[in-house]
């Protein structure tokens, strides 16, 4: 069964370490230890302004995580529906899902965020962070949809036939047979998308959502410590994404148990 496994490459995520990249001299370890060492030495040897900057950021980091986790949750759900819709034989469902993907993929994320945020403002009142989550989920739902579609399509048609011939309905077939297998193919690109999404949440700072980036900019604009502030912001983002990419690769190893 190993031979027909399909890997899906999605750009823009952080590089997820593979098994062969283990060891202390892998790119991951160099980057991680380097970032950590730089951060710590800045904090220790130049607490003013670096420690002050870092102390200003925690609630922004919390917001970044909130937006990331809420968005990835909704995006996964939307992506699953979209992915299934894209391979549905029902023409209307298929057309809706495909149109959604086409529209979202054709518009830059930044523009969509602006549009959804301000367009929504005209009709419904939702807090800015909710608007940001809706906008991010809407965009990433389409990307996830393509990941799910590819993942589901990577499962041999015989699996569906076997399940259906036993009496499973399409929904049960998806839940018990297809998705548990597709997950292996889907997880790496989903992990990538997850990390890409975390980085893209920095865009919500233009919506005046007080995330990590915006907190940093607020600090910098008041103290004129642009270089120092962006150094810290970059290091914080880097450390977070490196940890997440390690977690994703650990999960990948786990999920390969039955191969």
């Amino acid at each position: 069964m190993d031979d027909d496994r399909i890997t899906i490459d999605v750009t823009d995520g952080a590089a997820i370490p593979r098994r062969k990249d283990a060891g202390l001299f892998s790119a991951w370890w160099i980057a991680f230890l380097g970032a950590l060492l730089t951060l710590v030495s800045l904090l220790v040897f130049e607490p003013d302004p670096y420690l002050k900057i870092l102390k200003f950021l925690p609630d922004g980091i919390v917001v970044t995580f909130q937006v990331t986790f809420a968005s990835i949750g909704f995006a996964l759900l939307l992506g699953l529906l979209t992915g299934i819709g894209r391979i549905s034989k029902n023409r209307i469902v298929n057309a809706v899902a495909s149109t959604y993907v086409e529209v979202v993929r054709g518009i830059p994320l930044l523009v969509q965020l602006f549009y959804i945020y301000y367009a929504m403002g005209r009709f419904v009142k939702v807090p800015d962070i909710v608007a940001a989550v809706i906008a991010m989920s809407f965009c990433y739902g389409a990307y996830m949809g393509e990941v799910f579609r590819a993942g589901i399509e990577s499962i041999h048609k015989g699996q569906t036939e076997a399940a259906r011939s036993l009496g499973f309905n399409p929904f049960q077939t998806m839940v018990h047979v297809i998705l548990p297998q597709a997950w292996r193919t889907i997880l790496p690109p989903v992990g990538n998308e997850f990390i890409a999404l975390l980085k893209d949440t920095s865009l919500v700072s233009i919506l005046a959502v007080a995330d990590l980036l915006r907190r940093g900019r607020e600090f910098a604009s008041e103290t004129f410590t642009y270089f120092e502030t962006y150094t810290i912001i970059a290091l914080v983002y880097l450390i977070i994404t490196l940890i997440l990419s390690k977690l994703v690769s650990k999960m990948e190893e786990k999920i390969n148990y039955y191969a």
Binding site: Y118, G121, D128, I206, A208, A210, R214, R217, E218
Partner: peptide
């Protein structure tokens, strides 16, 4: 206090 990139965006909100 909520900060915006441009004053026009604050006015729109």
């Amino acid at each position: 206090a909520k900060s915006y990139d441009e004053i026009g965006l604050a006015m729109e909100d």
